[in-house]
Simulated scan of single mutants.
Amino acid sequence: MTRSLCRFLTGFLFGLALISGMPAQAAFPSSPDGPAPTVAPVLRQVTPGVVNIAVQGRVRVNNPLLADPFFRQFFNLPNGQVERRTQASGSGVIVDADKGYVLTNNHVVENADVIDVTLRDRRTVRAKLIGRDPQTDIAVLQIQADNLVAVPMGDSDKSEVGDFVLAIGNPFGLGQTVTSGIVSALGRSGLGIEGFEDFIQTDAAINPGNSGGALVDLKGRLIGINTAILAPAGGNVGVGFAVPINMAKSIMEQLLRYGTVEHGRVGISGQDMTAEIARGLGTSRTEGGVVTAIEPGSSADRAGLKVGDVVVAVDHQPSRNWISVVNRIALARVDQDVTLTVDRHGALSDLHVTVAATPAKPRQARGGQGYQ
């Protein structure tokens, strides 16, 4: 081994030790049998709170033959519909041990008649579906069992690109599996995966079956619910996405309290801030969402928002881009007041806007983009 390689390995181990919170000397064992850097202590605390989910359900099958009246009569299908049984597997995270609440993805359980949850200690219990929200792909289950262990929730708004993370789930139905990586990007949107997207992107290996599993930091705090991958070849290529836990928590609270999620709007349309727009508006801001249209008579109109306002925060939480503005408004409960902090010609002001319900067919702003 060359001297330069030795220096590199020494520095790497020292850095890993600091990141994982271990004493620095742990990275420099005094003998070949000494301790090595590891995340095993974190996983011992977290993995009991990550579960495997198996579902059975029914889906309707579309077939051109069903359009033939003779075919339907011959097979006694008066309504022209055929259903088939389905089976699927995924993952989930226990977030309340006392009440048995489990977070998972909507797409894991959306067609389920029967949901079975297998715990880390191999106990299998039947789960009750509390509620689900297709727009954010979050669902809440409840299980009844003794000695449950919950994964503590972190604050996904404090996550940064480069943070080390661990993904825990049930890939390909193999059973509980742990992978590691970093936060590759924040605020990913425009992927067409969900209605409201603000993903944490990670290169920790996420594969089919990981859906609904945990993305945790190196302190064992839950920062995301693993949801989707970009997989041109059908497997992991290092581009995975998780719903931020702050978004998932907001959805869970609404489902527990109301049984449904009603996404809100205030009647504005906009786009991401760009350097060109900033020059035109005479501001040095590079983040936020620029209001490009306001629905006449909407709550935003009544609150005094103007075209050209830059929304830099919603309820005093900074907005990186337009989608973060949309998401925070959409997650607010209908009839709730939200505070929009806007930059207008370089001056900041707070405007209080009442959230309204999103109509079944939202009106379109000029240019074709829907009001939010």
Rank of each mutant, 00 (worst) to 15 (best):
residue 1 M to R: 05
residue 8 F to A: 13
residue 8 F to R: 13
residue 11 G to K: 07
residue 11 G to H: 12
residue 19 I to P: 01
residue 21 G to V: 00
residue 28 F to Y: 12
residue 30 S to R: 15
residue 30 S to Y: 04
residue 32 P to Q: 06
residue 34 G to C: 08
residue 37 P to G: 01
residue 39 V to A: 13
residue 39 V to Y: 14
residue 41 P to I: 03
residue 48 P to A: 04
residue 49 G to Q: 05
residue 52 N to Q: 14
residue 56 Q to W: 02
residue 58 R to V: 03
residue 72 R to Q: 14
residue 78 P to W: 07
residue 84 R to V: 14
residue 88 A to Q: 10
residue 96 D to H: 08
residue 96 D to I: 02
residue 100 G to V: 04
residue 109 V to I: 15
residue 128 K to R: 15
residue 132 R to V: 00
residue 137 D to C: 01
residue 142 Q to G: 05
residue 148 L to Q: 06
residue 149 V to S: 13
residue 151 V to S: 11
residue 157 D to L: 02
residue 166 L to D: 02
residue 169 G to Q: 07
residue 169 G to P: 10
residue 169 G to Y: 04
residue 175 G to H: 13
residue 177 T to E: 12
residue 180 S to Y: 06
residue 181 G to P: 04
residue 182 I to L: 11
residue 184 S to L: 00
residue 186 L to C: 09
residue 191 L to R: 10
residue 200 I to N: 11
residue 206 I to S: 07
residue 206 I to V: 14
residue 206 I to H: 06
residue 207 N to R: 00
residue 212 G to V: 02
residue 214 A to Y: 09
residue 214 A to G: 11
residue 221 R to H: 14
residue 228 A to I: 06
residue 229 I to A: 09
residue 236 N to A: 14
residue 241 F to L: 07
residue 241 F to T: 03
residue 241 F to G: 08
residue 243 V to R: 04
residue 244 P to Y: 01
residue 248 A to F: 02
residue 253 E to N: 14
residue 260 T to E: 12
residue 262 E to W: 00
residue 267 G to F: 01
residue 268 I to G: 06
residue 281 L to T: 08
residue 281 L to H: 05
residue 284 S to L: 09
residue 295 E to P: 03
residue 298 S to N: 10
residue 301 D to Q: 06
residue 312 V to P: 12
residue 316 H to L: 04
residue 319 S to W: 00
residue 326 V to Q: 14
residue 329 I to G: 05
residue 331 L to V: 13
residue 337 D to I: 09
residue 348 L to K: 13
residue 350 D to P: 03
residue 350 D to F: 00
residue 351 L to V: 09
